[in-house]
Simulated scan of single mutants.
Amino acid sequence: MSYWNKYPNIQKEMDKVEEILADTVKSRRKIVQDASMDLIQAGGKRIRPALTIISAQFGQYESDKVTTLAAALELFHTATLIHDDIIDNAKTRRGIETAQSKYGKDIAVYTGDYLFSKAFLLVSRIDGGQKVVHLSRFIKAICEGEIEQHAAKYNSTGSIVTYLKRIKYKTALLFALCCQVGAEAAECSPKTIRSLRRYGMSMGTAFQLKDDLLDLTGDEKITGKPVGSDIVEGVYTMPLLYTLRNNSFRTKTLEVLNKTSLSFTDIAELVVLIKEAGGIEYTRDFEKKYYHKARQSLKQLRDHPNVAILDDLIREMEIRVK
Rank of each mutant, 00 (worst) to 15 (best):
A50Y: 01
A50V: 10
L51R: 05
T52W: 00
T52E: 01
T52N: 09
I53C: 08
I54M: 10
S55A: 15
Q57A: 04
F58C: 05
G59E: 08
Q60Y: 13
Y61H: 14
E62K: 14
E62V: 12
S63I: 09
D64K: 13
K65R: 15
L69Q: 06
A71T: 14
A72H: 02
F76E: 07
H77D: 15
T78K: 04
T78R: 05
A79S: 15
A79N: 06
T80H: 07
L81A: 06
I82H: 03
H83C: 10
D84P: 12
D84R: 08
D84V: 12
D85N: 15
I86Q: 05
D88E: 14
D88I: 12
R93N: 10
R94D: 09
G95I: 13
I96F: 11
Q100H: 11
Q100E: 13
K102G: 07
G104W: 00
K105V: 15
D106F: 09
I107S: 06
T111L: 08
G112L: 02
G112N: 01
D113A: 12
D113F: 04
Y114N: 09
L115R: 01
S117P: 04
F120M: 12
L121K: 00
L122I: 09
V123S: 05
V123F: 08
S124V: 05
S124E: 14
R125M: 10
R125N: 14
I126P: 03
G129M: 03
G129C: 02
Q130M: 12
Q130W: 10
Q130L: 11
K131P: 00
V132Q: 09
V132E: 08
H134A: 08
L135C: 07
F138M: 09
I139W: 09
A141N: 10
C143L: 11
I147V: 11
I147F: 05
E148L: 09
A151K: 14
A152W: 01
Y154G: 01
Y154I: 01
Y154N: 13
N155V: 06
T157L: 06
G158N: 11
G158P: 07
G158A: 10
S159T: 14
I160Q: 06
V161C: 04
V161P: 01
L164E: 15
I167L: 14
T171D: 00
T171E: 07
A172L: 09
L173T: 05
L174R: 06
A176H: 03
L177G: 05
L177V: 13
L177E: 02
C178M: 13
C179N: 11
C179Y: 02
Q180L: 14
G182Y: 01
A183I: 13
A183N: 04
